[in-house]
Amino acid sequence: MLKIDHVFANAGEKEILKGLSLEVKPGEVHAIMGPNGAGKSTLGNLLAGMPYVEPQGGSVEYMGQDLLSLEPEERAAVGVFLAFQYPVEIPGVNNMYFLRTALNAQRKYRGEEPMDSAQFLRMVKQKIKDMNMRDDLLKRPVNVGFSGGEKKRNEVFQMGVLEPKLAILDETDSGLDIDALKIVADGVNQLRSPDRSFIIITHYQRLLDYIEPDFVHVLADGKIVKSGDKNLALELEEQGYGWLNN
């Protein structure tokens, strides 16, 4: 599904990713851990095509396509979703209208019929129920006045509605209390399926108590320096990242 091969990338003037490689197969959940400044968020932003990250070399193949050649909105339409670390506010635009615009833009790109408002309403009402979230989320303007936890929940809800093939969660667990963490994790677990893959960028192991990863990678200084199964996360929790310097 995703094959990242020796990718180099800059954020601003600074070289952040330095020959990173990673392969993700359908249905797999990969956790990316690592110290601050290692390039974890840059990796997510690179895959989503955010303009502040510039690829400098290497290749990213996504479902047989050259991902880096696609515009950000095209990547979204082919199923790449990024749950932002800092979701932005859009005053005056309610969440439901925003999501319907997004969904129909993606459908249009894929040559599918737009979803009418009645169909859409039925669908989101069901999703919000399934994901144990409150339906006032739908009527409120996008992220405006949301608490940190609500913003992160909203990201996971949007993911549920847009049904991506590759979901990247950029420190979605940061700033969440344990209840919010459970709701977010629960939302992600519901979305796990044999044809949907996840890249979970996180600082802490505790999210992985609720979302069980197939693989755990340590990203340091722009490269994956160690990979393993979920036990690696537990080791990291115990030892910290200090050993990387030795």
Binding site: A48, G49, M50, P51, Y52, E71, P72, E73, R75, A76, A77, F81, L82, F84, Y86, P87, V88, E89, I90, F98, L99, T101, A102, L103, A105, Q106, Y109, Q158, L162
Partner: peptide, 14 residues
């Protein structure tokens, strides 16, 4: 803001 635009683009909105 660029951030607002990027957010929309990432959701598939032109």
């Amino acid at each position: 803001s660029e951030d607002q635009l990027n957010y929309c683009l990432q959701r598939g909105i032109t």
